[in-house]
C-alpha cells in the first residue's frame, strides 16, 4: 500500500526538481549612485543547487551586470564569502534547500569592508592585517638540507588553524571589526596562531608582541560570531583565547 504512494512522490519530484526562488540581492554601482538598493530576481532552480549556482544563473541568463567574486567554486579559494540571509557564508557551500527557499533569499556583500560593486568588496584592509602578523615561517641558523621535521603531536597543536582559506567571513562578522576596522580581526589572529604554536617557527614572541597591540587580541569580546561564520569549522574564538593565554603565560 505504501509502495505506490512512494512511487508517485518520486515520479512527481523526478518530473520537475525546479522551484521558483526569489533572490534578493543588495546591489551597488558607484557609476550610478552612491547608495545601494535591494533588487529581486525570480529564478527557477533545483533546491539541491547552491547559492552560487543561483548567482550564476542570474549573471548568465538574467542580468550580466551582477558582479561577484568566485574562483574555484568548491569552498577552497575563499573568494565568494557573502552575507546570505544575514549570515556570512560561502555561496559555493550553501545549498538553496538549507536556507528556506520559500522566503526571499537575501544576498549582500560582507560587512565592514568597502563595497566596490554589488557583492565585491575591497579586501585590502583584511590582507593588511594578515600581512601585519607575519604569516610565514621565520627561523634562525642554517637552512636544513631536508625538510624541517616535526612530531605528529607538534603538528596537531596548530592543525585547526591551518585550515583557514582567508575568505574574510569571520573578520567581517566581528562587531568589533565593524566599528572602526582597526582591530586585527579573527582571520589575522588565526593565521598568527598557526605560526605561534608551530614548533619549527622562531618568531612567536614577535607575533605575540604585534597582537599585544591596542587593537590586538585584547579587543576580542568573545561573541563567537567568527566561530559561527567560519565555513571551514575552525574554532576561531578558541584560537584567539589561546593567543591571549600565551601572551599572559609567556610573560609571567
Amino acid at each position: 500500500m505504501a509502495t505506490p504512494v512512494l512511487d508517485k512522490v518520486e515520479a512527481e519530484s523526478a518530473a520537475s526538481p525546479y522551484i521558483t526562488v526569489t533572490m534578493r540581492i543588495r546591489r551597488f554601482n558607484p557609476e550610478i549612485s552612491d547608495a545601494s538598493v535591494w533588487e529581486d530576481f525570480q529564478i527557477e532552480i533545483d533546491p539541491k543547487e547552491r547559492v552560487l549556482d543561483a548567482l550564476h544563473k542570474i549573471k548568465w541568463d538574467v542580468d550580466g551586470t551582477l558582479t561577484f567574486r568566485r574562483s574555484c567554486a568548491h569552498g577552497i579559494c575563499g573568494s565568494d564569502a557573502m552575507r546570505i540571509n544575514g549570515k556570512n557564508r560561502l555561496a559555493c557551500k550553501t545549498l538553496i534547500k538549507d536556507i528556506n527557499p520559500e522566503k526571499p533569499i537575501t544576498v549582500e556583500a560582507i560587512k565592514g569592508l568597502t563595497v566596490l560593486k554589488d557583492l565585491v568588496v575591497d579586501m585590502e584592509p583584511f590582507f593588511q592585517a594578515y600581512r601585519d602578523v607575519m604569516p610565514f615561517l621565520v627561523t634562525k641558523g642554517n637552512e636544513p638540507t631536508r625538510e624541517r621535521l616535526q612530531t605528529a603531536e607538534d603538528r596537531e597543536r596548530f592543525d585547526d588553524t591551518t585550515k583557514c582559506i582567508l575568505c574574510a567571513a569571520c573578520t567581517s562578522s566581528c562587531p568589533v571589526f565593524w566599528n572602526d576596522g582597526q582591530y586585527f580581526g579573527p582571520a589575522a589572529i588565526v593565521n598568527a596562531h598557526r605560526f605561534i604554536f608551530d614548533s619549527r617557527d622562531e618568531a612567536g614572541e614577535q607575533r605575540l608582541e604585534i597582537l599585544n597591540d591596542k587593537d590586538g587580541v585584547w579587543r576580542c569580546r568573545t561573541t563567537f560570531n567568527c566561530t559561527d561564520a567560519c565555513p571551514r569549522g575552525i574554532e576561531v574564538t578558541k584560537a584567539i583565547q589561546e593567543v591571549k593565554r600565551a601572551l599572559i603565560t609567556r610573560r609571567f
Binding site: 558607484p30 552612491d34 568597502t114 575591497d122 584592509p125 583584511f126 572602526d180 576596522g181
Partner: peptide, 12 residues
C-alpha cells in the same frame, strides 16, 4: 564620475 570611494579604515 563614479561615487566617491570610501577610504578603507585600516589603510596606513
Amino acid at each position: 564620475n563614479p561615487a566617491p570611494y570610501i577610504e578603507a579604515p585600516r589603510k596606513r
